[in-house]
Amino acid sequence: MTPTLWSAIRSEWIKFRSVRSTITGILTFIALTIGISAVVCIAVKSHWSDPGSHFDHLVFDPTSTSLTGIFLAQFAVGTIGILAVTSEYSTGSMRTTLSAVPRRARVVLAKMAVLIAAIVILGEIVVFTAFTIGQAIFKGVVPTASLATGDVLRAVMMAGAYLTLITLFAFGIGLIVRTTAASIIVYTAVLLIVPIIVNFLPRVLQHDITRFLPSQLGSAMWSTSQPAQTFSWGLSSGILAAYVVALVGVGTYLLQRRDA
């Protein structure tokens, strides 16, 4: 009869699937990942034989090209991660949630469990679909990649893993910041604006800092060969996971300290 972590997870799952923002977020995520990726693949294919495209051919990676939609999709999943906590504050339902589950760390774990389950499954399905569609578009004209190659399989799987980790990263920001708008600004700034600012730093610093940025960690994870200014895909996933642990850790500490 005593409620457990599992009871809290079931409760969070009901909450997750019963609001429209989750559903729209997920549909946007699917459409962006598969749609944008396919559009990019078609564009590449139609210009493949253009004169002067030799340089494009040299750096071409059929795997990451077929996953280009991730650049936008990470904002859809990030929003899902952020809303999982900020919508509770904006609607006042956080008080109801914490009355039902007064152990606040348990609330955080339950929300994370639901996000992981949803985005891992959905994310993997979506990236493998985008990959398959991309290779089908390339077929015959552009070189294609096969999942039978170890690095290709790893890159596609890691693309799904990146989306899950970045969702939790956003969730951690939401826990700390608490309002939707501010959380989305912080999240977008970290993914898009910080890399631009780093570009203006002296080259020596650039090299040291860029490798640690979430966007670069992601590129390393879903590329078949290690891109410039990145760590290995394994180390990159580890660093991103460490960011998640740090953000969620700080967020949980604050949740426990603050008045709801």
Binding site: P3, T4, A8, S11, S87, T91
Partner: peptide, 20 residues
């Protein structure tokens, strides 16, 4: 203090589930 986009039943079910 209820999420307005959730139905009454789902709101109560989420509460019920959390406490078995």
């Amino acid at each position: 203090s209820v999420n307005p986009s959730r139905s009454a039943r789902n709101h109560l079910r989420a509460l019920a589930a959390s406490n078995k």
